[in-house]
Amino acid sequence: MVNSFDSKVMFNNISYLASQQNKKIGELETAAGVSTGYISRTKDGSFKPGIEFVLNVANELNVSVDTLLKTDLSALTPTEQYLKNLLERLITDTTSDKLDWNVETADSLNYIQPDENGNTGHPLFSVKTFMVPTEVEYPEEVTRPVFESRTFGNQTCIADDCFYLQLNNDTTLYLMSICKLVHQVGDPNAYAKELWISNKTEQQELCSNKGTETISPLVNDLYTVVVESSNHPKIKQNLKAALDSYLENVINED
């Protein structure tokens, strides 16, 4: 992060966010624990702001430190800003154990079996007929269930555990870990993470770690914290209510 520090980017972001949130610079300085005029004295690059100031001002402006230091927020499109906010909220809520992510293993997805009508039972998978590379001169035509990713199209294989999160209105978020169907060992470009949204009628890829510079690191961060979260015990909310009731009764009796 030190090597990527650009004081102009940070102070432009402070000005931009303060304006968006109707906050005065003087009030922001007070909330961040620095003297009045600190920002104007520091933004010319004569010296670097202290880490305590960076942490405090990021917290006051409700933005991650990484975004504050590295991302030119004023250059984002409205959709990019929306997705950035979404990803940061998902990361925060996952870290705080507020979200109930469910796991789908690579094996369970790579070997989905359609029913007699060709239904896969998964909104992101459908039966497709397409050509796949072979070891011989000509490709082979196959018909099978496939996740047609934004990154690799129908040449997509599931690389690792994937996760889904139930939202309101019968809508689901899917965090997919994928790779190219045929690729060289060790090729980093053959792997990707994609975030999808689906309801009863349609599906859409929201973003991936192969997208814009602003969004890509956040997709990686989200996958990392979801994997970490999945390694810890979870209690489903509808079941936790019964446990809460029991604990409250015991406390009341005491």
Rank of each mutant, 00 (worst) to 15 (best):
W196Q: 00
H183C: 11
L206I: 15
C157M: 12
T171D: 04
L195P: 04
D170H: 12
T201D: 13
T156Q: 05
Q155A: 11
Y191E: 08
N154D: 15
Q155P: 02
N154I: 11
D170Q: 15
S208Y: 03
D161G: 05
K180Q: 14
C162W: 01
N168T: 11
C207H: 07
L195E: 06
N169Q: 15
G153F: 05
L167S: 10
L181D: 12
L175Y: 04
L181M: 12
C157S: 14
C207V: 13
Q203I: 15
D160Q: 07
N169R: 13
C207W: 06
M176C: 07
Q184F: 10
Q166A: 12
G211A: 04
L173T: 05
A192L: 03
E194F: 02
F163I: 00
L173D: 08
F163L: 01
Q166M: 10
N168P: 00
I158P: 07
H183E: 08
T201A: 12
T172K: 14
F163V: 00
E202V: 14
K180E: 13
T171N: 05
L206M: 15
N209K: 06
M176S: 05
C162G: 02
N154V: 14
S208I: 07
G186Q: 08
L206V: 09
L175A: 06
G153W: 05
C162V: 03
Q155K: 10
D187M: 08
L165K: 00
N209R: 04
K180H: 14
T171V: 10
E205S: 15
G211M: 02
E202F: 14
T201H: 12
S177F: 01
N209S: 10
F163H: 03
N199I: 10
L173W: 12
V185S: 09
D160L: 01
Q166S: 13
Q204V: 15
L206D: 09
A190D: 06
C179V: 00
L167G: 11
H183S: 12
K200R: 14
G211H: 05
I178V: 11
N168L: 13
C179F: 04
A159R: 07
K180L: 12
L173M: 09
V182A: 12
Y174L: 05
A159M: 02
I158R: 03
G211C: 07
E194K: 03
L195A: 06
L206S: 09
K180M: 11
